[in-house]
């Protein structure tokens, strides 16, 4: 056995056979004989295990997509032959787009509310808090993630009742902004169970995931970068701005996108809190609906075409989530920084 092995690239599917004699440069001659590196059994088992795990993920994802597609065929057929059969009577797209808008708006509000808080908490626990307090605070935040969404739903219903006064105040002073506009008779939702309430509860639900991830990223800021900033005479906040945030930028984006994914798909809490209705611009009156909540609320009584409709709506959510994640990947790839 040669003791000095030149490391040559070998794909996970191409485990090396016996090494060829003599060190050869990794030649770029596709089709020709390529020198194979020595692969130990442990490496081979490990690489096979990871390969299986990777393929399994793809298979499951493809399975879900196929299921959604297959179950959607009735809806697609109905849409093509007679769109009036579909709920609402004006075809699938006019049925689904208010749901899409409602989903996107609630997720966006949740994100806008949660991200600054999450970054603040993460920065506080990593760079500001006294050393004894910091781990405790991180633990408490992680605990938020362990609360079942049905509990959030119950809490959100309780919260909704207390928000009506606030919504009335909003509509009185900020009613000129369409999203806070009161109903035609000047009233707002009596129960407070509006899309804004649901979004606020969603923001608390996605807070832990964003906080945990950004905290881990901020902890990894190279000490050298932090010291470089401090040695230039930066205050703590300036150091965070010069060293911590630029280093964590791509991580912040991916953490936020994971939060967004959760907000888009969250079902139980929204279904419990929101009293659904038609799409309205105002967030303080009753109305609006999200995809996940629409499915959950209608699924138990659905059959036949209605069932297929709901599954097609699920397919739409699947596609939206996929697009959001691809967008996030693109942003991460563009903003990632070579840390030193």
């Amino acid at each position: 056995m040669p003791t000095s092995t030149q490391i040559t690239e070998s794909g996970p599917t191409g485990p090396g056979s016996a090494p060829e004699a003599g060190p050869q440069p990794p030649a770029s001659n596709p089709g020709g004989t390529r020198p194979k590196a020595v692969v130990r059994p442990g490496d081979r088992i490990f690489s096979a295990a990871t390969l299986i795990a990777g393929i399994l993920i793809l298979l499951i994802l493809a399975g879900v997509a196929l299921f959604l597609l297959a179950q959607s065929k009735d809806t697609i057929a109905a849409q093509l032959s007679d769109p009036t059969q579909i709920t609402g009577g004006r075809g699938f797209f006019s049925y689904v787009w208010p749901l899409v808008i409602g989903t996107l708006i609630s997720a966006a509000i949740a994100l806008v509310v949660a991200t600054p808080f999450a970054l603040g908490i993460a920065l506080f626990t990593t760079h500001m808090a006294p050393r004894r307090l910091a781990p405790m605070l991180g633990y408490v935040i992680d605990l938020l993630a362990a609360i079942p969404s049905v509990v959030y739903g119950l809490w959100g219903i309780a919260l909704a009742g207390n928000l009506t006064g606030f919504y009335l105040w909003l509509s009185k002073w900020f009613g000129w902004i369409p999203i806070f506009a009161p109903a035609a008779d000047g009233s707002v939702s009596q129960t407070g169970r509006t899309l804004l309430t649901a979004s606020l509860v969603l923001s608390i639900m996605i807070l832990p995931i964003i906080t945990s991830l950004t905290r881990e990223i901020f902890l990894q800021t190279p000490r050298l970068q932090e010291e470089a900033a401090l040695a230039l005479g930066a205050t703590r906040w300036e150091m965070i701005r010069m060293a911590v945030l630029p280093f964590g930028r791509s991580g912040i984006v991916s953490a936020t996108m994971l939060g967004l994914g959760r907000a888009l798909g969250e079902t139980m809490a929204v279904a419990m809190i929101l009293s659904p209705g038609v799409l309205t611009a105002s967030l303080v009156v009753s109305g609006n609906q999200t995809i996940a909540s629409e499915i959950a609320q209608n699924f138990p009584e659905a059959a036949g075409l209605r069932l297929s409709e709901l599954i097609t709506v699920g397919l739409v959510l699947f596609v939206i989530t996929l697009l959001v994640n691809m967008g996030a990947r693109a942003i991460v790839a563009r903003t990632s920084v070579k840390g030193s």
Partner: peptide, 12 residues
Amino acid sequence: GMVFQRANPFPT
């Protein structure tokens, strides 16, 4: 001013 053991320009 201070210069460190390893060069640490701000990467961004």
